[in-house]
Design a protein around this nucleic acid. Structure first.
Length: 227
DNA sequence: AGCACGATTAACT
DNA sequence: GTTAATCGTGCTC
């Protein structure tokens, strides 16, 4: 196994657009303690096991981030922080490098990473990943649909990786976190030629310029060799 | 207390 | 292409 470099607090302190662009090609990792009964997943070693306890504690589920969107500031009419500080948006005003997980449409969870300076509300929505670890658990959670439909949407990622409100506010940079991001070993892995930007999705009732501002970033992995 | 709508998805015609 | 599902959130009364 190659050494993994977990993204630091400094990474998430960057401006939202920069963070959204640089997250492409990084690996989203979910250490899912609740997946220990499901078959086929690689087990990870829980802290208690390192200290000598008996059983492994869950599955390591992971994928390469291939689509993101930036949301920043109370002026951004597409951002939840347009309502200011509320119980829901409080996490976005907190320190960078934490998860902002929210519930919408009465049934779906969405995963974001809080970015920029503490006190300034900004986040990056994770819209799609290319699954690489824990494929059997992911397939099961995604009802054994074709692999292309496993994690090609923000709510699908949360269903596949079992991300819900319990993970709202968790620190992605804390040792032993159950959710974190690994940098690619060789620096920025996705060249600009393979990255497209465009308007954010699903803001149909949001006024311009926020509705069309190109704060969505998509990577194409076809033909790329991912180590 | 009531209401409109949502950073979506799956299943339709 | 259209639409139902389903409930937390923020806004108005």
């Amino acid at each position: 196994m190659p050494q993994s470099a977990v993204l630091s607090r400094e990474f998430f302190t960057a401006p939202a657009l920069q963070a959204a662009r640089r997250l492409l090609g990084c690996r989203l990792v979910r250490l899912d303690e609740g997946a220990c009964q499901e078959s086929g997943a690689r087990r990870y070693q829980g802290a208690s096991e390192v200290r000598g306890a008996r059983e492994s504690r869950g599955a390591r589920l992971a994928g390469i981030i291939i689509e993101t969107e930036a949301y920043r500031g109370e002026e951004d009419q597409g951002c939840h922080a347009r309502a200011g500080r509320t119980p829901r948006t409080e996490v976005m005003y907190g320190p960078p490098g934490h998860a902002y997980v929210y519930f919408t449409y009465g049934m779906h969870w969405m995963l974001n990473f809080v970015v920029e300076a503490e006190g300034y509300p900004a986040a990056v929505l994770i819209r799609a990943i290319h699954p690489e670890e824990g494929l059997e658990v992911i397939a099961s959670r995604r009802n054994h649909l074709p692999p292309k439909q496993w994690t090609n949407g923000p709510a699908k990622i949360c269903q596949a990786l079992r991300i819900d409100g319990r993970l709202n506010g968790v620190d992605l940079c804390a040792p032993g976190a159950e959710l974190f991001v690994e940098a690619p070993l060789g620096g920025s892995p996705i060249p600009d030629e393979r990255v497209a930007s465009g308007p954010r999705v699903g803001l149909n009732n949001v006024p311009e310029p926020w509705r069309s501002i190109p704060w969505r970033f998509q990577a194409r992995l076809e033909g790329m060799v991912i180590e």
